[in-house]
Design a protein around this nucleic acid. Structure first.
Length: 325
DNA sequence: CGTATTTGACCTGCGC
DNA sequence: GCGCAGGTCAAATACG
């Protein structure tokens, strides 16, 4: 639910200039939908009221003519204005009911997704517990191809399709035309293992990438020039879902799951509250890299990085480096 | 005054 | 082992 609303916010925030959008996102979160509706309500009611005022004025003009039927005429005019107002309110109510329906659907879908994900996660964890690998991150071992594939199947699909679906659903309630929601938002998610070398490669990739939505491309050929080095981390396309998993070929390399999101705005409102805990100037990028930790719940282990794209300094790339534990 | 942000120091992993 | 770069910590500072 939060995701839906915040996503909608993001779509709107994209048009805003850089600024304190993070704060804006936090404050507006959750209230946005209501305020939107409220504004509409006010508008409609004002419209009705305006109509009433006009009629009254006309009535007043008639009164100027002076006559014994003035009071009855005024009364009938008032009645008609009240009827208009009522019908306006009725329309408003029915519109809100429809909106409610849509929102309820979204909540149901979200709950269903969450339940689904929980089941998958439990199964995956159980599966991996049997193997008792201490280096598992989010129950994922880099060498366990099956596990990598399962996680890739479970997590990204939930994130990917539902995120977009919800965005579409919410947007459609506003009468927007949503084609490729992900493309519009410039979001992309991927599963990866990490190493400093790989991240350097990714940075290079960011620099070389023409199209910001290119991360949706199933296969990334950045390792083509690494043929000589078989030790390097290789990316694997997973089901052409637009999610790429980085299967580590090095056994001892720490495996981790990353979710990347890219957005046009200065920040991405993803339904979480983030607190900045560090900033670093990365080599080769004049813009500092910011580190955030999730503050939704005390002790929440989720963190994310916000990097500026070198190509477009106004574009931020978000990376959640570790979802484990 | 409580909370968020900034920033320099420190830790860790990797390549040479 | 050393140096470098990325990531994190925590004291200082800013802000509402």
């Amino acid at each position: 639910m939060d995701i839906d609303l915040s996503l909608k916010m993001d779509a709107e925030n994209e048009e805003e200039e850089d600024g304190d959008e993070e704060r804006h996102g936090r404050e507006g979160e959750g209230n946005h939908q209501e305020s939107e509706v409220d504004r509409e309500n006010t508008h409609d009611i004002n419209e009705a009221a305006g109509g009433a005022t006009t009629t009254t004025t006309i009535g007043g003009g008639g009164g100027g003519g002076g006559g014994g039927d003035d009071s009855s005429l005024e009364l009938s005019l008032q009645e008609s204005s009240k009827t208009e107002e009522l019908s306006g309110l009725h329309m408003k109510i029915s519109r809100m009911k429809e909106e409610n329906k849509v929102l309820r659907k979204i909540v149901d879908q979200t709950m269903k997704d969450f339940h689904d994900l929980q089941i998958r996660f439990a199964a995956l964890q159980q599966n991996l517990d049997q193997k008792k690998d201490p280096q598992i991150s989010l129950g994922l071992h880099a060498n366990d191809k099956k596990a990598v594939q399962e996680v890739a199947k479970a997590i990204p699909r939930q994130f990917d399709s539902n995120y977009i679906q919800r965005h579409q659903a919410v947007a459609s309630t506003k009468g927007e035309t949503v084609g490729e929601g992900a493309d519009e938002l410039g979001l992309s998610l991927r599963l990866q293992t990490s190493s400093s070398q790989q991240e350097r490669e990714e940075d290079m990739e960011e620099n070389n990438m023409e199209d910001p939505t290119a991360l949706f491309a199933p296969a990334i050929s950045q390792n083509n020039n690494n043929n000589s080095n078989s030790n390097k981390v290789q990316r694997t396309d997973l089901g052409g879902s637009g999610i790429s998993a980085h299967g580590a070929s090095l056994a001892n390399r720490k495996a981790r799951v990353s979710v990347r999101a890219r957005c046009q705005g200065a920040t991405m409102n993803d339904g979480c509250q983030w607190r900045k805990y560090g900033q670093k100037i990365a080599k080769g990028n004049p813009c500092p890299r910011a580190y955030y930790r999730c503050t939704v719940a005390p002790g929440c282990p989720v963190r994310k990085q916000a990097r500026h794209s070198i190509r477009d300094h106004h574009r931020l790339i978000f990376i959640i480096p570790e979802l484990s534990r």
